[in-house]
């Protein structure tokens, strides 16, 4: 359907008649557009409304019922959770988990992006490829590997500690270390995302900015503070916001590594909701716990949307 083909058609059928039909077709097409456009979006709308919007409101309704889902109990489930220490521990652990993990993922990702950017271009592909492997493996399965690494008696880490220092660490059975482990695994899994985003952003910083800074006598540190970080500010912000959502709602790692233990101290909202709602069968209470994630997610989503809109306007 290229230009020569069109010309051929015109020559074959006679110019006047052909232009006439093309125009009617064009007009017809335009007239049909809104209906057609809507029909093309209908499957998407059906999916979003039926399996995302409706379940969300259904979840709010569920959270207002009693355990057997026979009676409307208003906010009793929420008030019940407020009185439980475990719930507040989940709140604190989720916040600690998210802040620590996102901070270190961003930091390590930033450092690694610079390291990869510093080596010759033809070698970068290989290193970037290797660094992305943790992100590519299904997290539930790679966490199984970590679980084995943290095994108390056969642990690869404990072997070093035992052989050289004569001690060992109860990685997953002591609160502090269990929290350390779930955060470590999350950092391991999520850093490549930051690395890729920052590396792509670094490549887009115009080289002449650095040249200008060099001429002005800036050292490497000053270039970082006054050129790189201001240029990358937007992408740093949006990557951290994205990661905040994913980390805060994380499920796989804690579920496989500790199942929330020891004594519920590593539970996040998602794993706590799972153990209450699916394992113990108290659907309303589980729905209630998972809905507590919503405010945090909504705030992060608000800022992401604002950031994306701003960028659309700049273009």
């Amino acid at each position: 359907m290229s230009q020569p083909a069109a010309q051929e058609q015109v020559a074959r059928y006679g110019a006047a008649a052909s232009i006439g039909t093309v125009f009617t077709k064009f007009r017809k097409f335009l007239r049909r557009r809104p209906t057609l456009a809507f029909l093309l979006c209908a499957p998407l709308l059906g999916l979003v409304i039926g399996l995302i919007v409706y379940p969300f409101f259904y979840s709010i309704w569920l959270s207002l019922l009693n355990k057997k889902e026979t009676r409307f109990v208003e906010l009793a489930n929420y008030l019940f959770l407020f009185k439980r220490d475990t719930f507040w521990m989940v709140v604190r652990q989720s916040v600690l988990f998210t802040l620590t993990a996102v901070f270190f993922k961003a930091l390590i990702g930033f450092i690694m992006a610079h390291l990869i950017d510093a080596i010759p271009t033809h070698r970068q592909r290989l290193w970037r490829g290797l660094a992305l492997i943790p992100w590519v493996m299904p997290p539930a399965l790679s966490t199984l590997g970590w679980w084995w690494i943290f095994d108390p008696s056969h642990s690869a880490f404990n072997w070093i500690l035992h052989t050289f220092f004569g001690t060992s660490v109860p990685w997953l059975s002591e609160t502090f270390w269990a929290r350390f482990c779930v955060i470590l695994v999350n950092i391991w899994w999520g850093t490549p995302f930051f690395l890729i985003m920052y590396l792509a952003a670094l490549k887009s910083v115009p080289a002449n900015l650095y040249e200008a800074a060099s001429i002005d006598g800036a050292n490497a540190w000053q270039k970082l503070i006054y050129v790189t970080i201001p240029m990358l500010r937007n992408i740093i912000a949006i990557t951290m916001l994205f990661s905040t959502i994913v980390t805060f709602a994380n499920f796989d790692i804690v579920r496989v590594l500790t199942m929330g233990g020891p004594r519920n101290t590593t539970h996040l909202f998602s794993t706590y909701a799972f153990s209450l709602g699916i394992m113990s069968g108290d659907i309303p209470l589980g729905a209630c716990v998972s809905l507590f994630m919503f405010p945090v997610l909504a705030v992060a989503a608000f800022f992401i949307l604002r950031n994306v809109r701003q960028r659309v306007r700049e273009i």
């Binding site: 979003v48 379940p55 259904y58 499920f251 997610l297």
Partner: peptide
């Protein structure tokens, strides 16, 4: 569409279980 992309699976698995 963009907003639903930000909705994590862990928010909706309990109502989906019922559905």
């Amino acid at each position: 569409v963009f907003l639903t992309y930000l909705v994590p699976e862990t928010l909706l698995f309990i109502p989906l279980f019922k559905v």
